[in-house]
Structure formats: C-alpha cells, structure tokens
Design a protein around this nucleic acid. Structure first.
Lengths: 210, 210
DNA sequence: GTTCTAAAATGAACAATGTTCAAGAAGAAT
DNA sequence: ATTCTTCTTGAACATTGTTCATTTTAGAAC
C-alpha cells in the first residue's frame, strides 16, 4: 500500500483556492479589522462564489478561525526564534518580540483574542492550546533562573507574566487609548520585566543591567 | 429666570424608556454576550418599536456605547471605594476589586474593551478618558510609596501596572483558556502585585507581608 | 374643551450580510 | 464515450441593522 497520496487536479485547485481565500481574508482583517470582513468581498476577490467559501470552511467563522490559527502559529514561530543562551535576555526577548509582532499585526492579534463565536459554541480547543503553549514559552528560562522553585508554580508564573505583558501591549497599542505613546512602549515593557525580575530576586534590586 | 427645568410628561416617558432600554441591553450583554444583542430583541423587551431605539440612541452602537459608559462608571465607583489609608494595601485592594468586578461582569467588561466601531469611526473620547482615569487610580498610592520619583513616570507606571493586572485577569477569566483556574486568580494577582512591589523596592525582597 | 402644532412613536420597507440548496459543471472512474 | 461522483454556482432565503412616511400624542393656544 502506497501512503503517498496522489494529488488530483481537483485537490490542487481546491487547495490553491483555500490558500487564496485565507490570504484575502487575512489581508482584509489586517488592513481594516475583523468587523470589515464580509463573505461577498472575500468571494469576489477570490474569484469564486460565496458557496465555495462555505463549501471549504463550513461557515464564516471557519474562515476567521483558520486565519486566527495561522496567526498564533506565526506568533509562536517568531517567539521560538528568540535566542535562549541567556535566560534573562530570553525573557526580555520574548516580551520585545511579542511587542514587535503585535505592533506589526495588531488587527490579526485582536481577531485572535477578541473574536467571539455565535451563540455559545466553544472556541476551538487547538487554538486555545496553541495560545497557552505560546504563553508558556517563558517557562524554560524561568526554570533556569529559579531552579529551586516548584515546576507547577513556574508554569503559572510564566502564563501570568506573559499575560501581564500582553495586557500592557494590547492596551498600549490601542491607538484610541492615547494613554501610552507607542514609541515608549518598548522601554516600558523592558522596565516592567526588569522590575518583575528584581521582585523575583533574579536581578538585584537597585542595580541596572549593563 | 428659573433654571429648574420642569419635567414634562413627555420627558418622563422618554427618560423611563431610555433607562429601560439600557437595562435590557445590559442584561442581554451580561447574560449572553455582546454578539447576542439584537435591536429587535431589545425593542420587543422594552415594549416599543425599533424606531424608538434609533430615535433615542441614534444607532445601535449608541446603545452599546452607553452601556459601556455606564460600565466604566460603575467600575470607577467601585475602585474609588477602595480604602486609602495604607498605600500598599490600597494597591492590593485595587487589583482585587478589579478582579471582583471583572469576575462579576465579565461580558460587560469584554463589551467595553472589545467592541469595535463600524468602519473607522473613532471610539468616543469620554469613554476612553474614563478608562484611562480608572487605570490612573494607582497613581496616588504609588506617589506616596515612591515620593522621590518623577510624577510623569509614576503616571506611566500606574497605567502599566493596571494594564498588566487587566491582562492577567482578562485572560485568566476566559473560561475558554483553561490555563488559569479562576479560584487561583486572586492569589495569583496578589502574588503578582507583591512581586512587582518588591521589584520597585517598596517591599523587601525575600520577606512576606504579615 | 377644541384646535393646532411640534415632537415622538410606529412598523413596514429597505439594505447589508450570513446561509442554504437545487441545478449545473467538471473531474474521475469505467 | 459514458457514467458517476464531487464540486461550483448563484439565486433565493434568513437574519439583522437602518430609514422614513405616516400616525399618534403631548403640550400649547385659543
């Protein structure tokens, strides 16, 4: 038995169109926000009928969720690329990289965190799991820095710290909240992480990094 | 000239209905989420026509924004009620109170933070200002604890710290993010604030509050 | 009290948008 | 080439936000 699936012409077209629909949807969300995403716009831009979008994704939420899934995958890839030699620098790097990614794809991240399902249908588990996994990326460096601490507590600390960074960034980047000038955000994030590491006893209180 | 406006029967009815519409809308958002709010449901529950809703609020966003405005007002009132004798306890109290309020009105808070306007119309300034003012409530206790620090920096710190707490809570309360068991959230928040105050040199590193 | 007027309420009609499905088109199997 | 399966289509439908000509009603004028 041959496990290599032969790719039929039909499958090729289907797959190409799937990618095209996703690319168009992502472009619209990214440029004008989730609320501006309309089935007919996507279908027209992809050169197909609205029925085909439904045929491929089940319903419109399916398109959004697939875009969101790819967003968290791209985010995770970026976060995994942060150098891990120095655990302290890794923590700063994770926060900075998250800021970069959020600033560069604000509407995509908002779609990921703010989209609500119709009725009370549950949000897909795999996406939630991926977000949680991304927020757990502070775990390894924290374990190295706090070798005596309980692993469960470190896991909690990782998510807490990352959630805190997320809160600072997501509110700080709301252009509507004039509160935090974006150019100061990076410095602000670094100082926040800095203070927290001092509080954890990882950095000395009252001293500064070289 | 008499400044006391006589309240006409017309105005009374108008005002009563306005309150009724808001109460119904708030109830629906609170119970089933912003996405389940429909003009016709509100109108029917209020015993009036859809036109009356539009007559009173301009458009449907107007209803949502008014509910959001009242949400942030209620939140601010609760936060202002936190005792201010001990600045450290005040900071803990603000975080805890925010957690309480968020846990008790999760869907209302989500409506406040996640609602996006149609097209690119700006979010009303007064609501943004009120949110910022609420997040600035950590300013006075921080000033007392860090009397030598620059006032502008304290203002920034206040918003940063509150945004961090917001991030931890809003992600932690997502029932969908199984990550953080809600019952642990309070303890988690307290530990987070604790660690940060140590990092700021306000509390001694390595010691615990009585 | 009657009449007049301005404001508000109404709800049917419209517009925008998500969803479905019967019929047709296109690829695969023989 | 014929048949069969699957996908595609787009018109029709369903839901929901929005408008507006008409009707109703509260208040004013007499």
């Amino acid at each position: 038995m041959n496990n290599v699936q032969e790719e039929s012409l039909r499958d090729q077209k289907k797959y190409r169109r799937r990618l095209q629909i996703l690319e168009i949807a992502r472009g619209i969300i990214s440029a004008k926000g989730l609320r501006s995403l309309k089935v007919r716009d996507v279908a027209e831009a992809a050169g197909c009928s609205v029925g085909s979008v439904y045929n491929e994704f089940g319903d419109f939420d399916g398109v959004i969720l697939t875009v969101n899934r790819e967003t968290v995958q791209a985010l995770t890839a970026r976060l995994r690329g942060v150098p891990a030699e120095d655990p302290v620098r890794q923590l700063y790097g994770l926060a900075d990289t998250y800021l970069d990614f959020f600033a560069g794809h604000a509407n995509l991240l908002r779609s990921l965190f703010e989209h609500r399902m119709e009725d009370d249908r549950p949000y897909p588990d795999d996406i939630l799991q991926m977000v949680m996994d991304a927020f757990a990326l502070m775990h390894p460096p924290l374990v190295r820095l706090l070798p005596d601490a309980d692993d469960v507590k470190i896991a909690l600390l990782s998510r807490t710290l990352f959630s805190a960074v997320h809160g600072i960034i997501s509110l700080g980047l709301e252009e509507r909240m004039v509160a935090v000038p974006p150019q100061m955000l990076r410095q602000q994030i670094e100082q926040f992480v800095d203070t927290h590491l001092r509080g954890l006893g990882i950095l000395p209180v009252g001293a500064r990094l070289p």
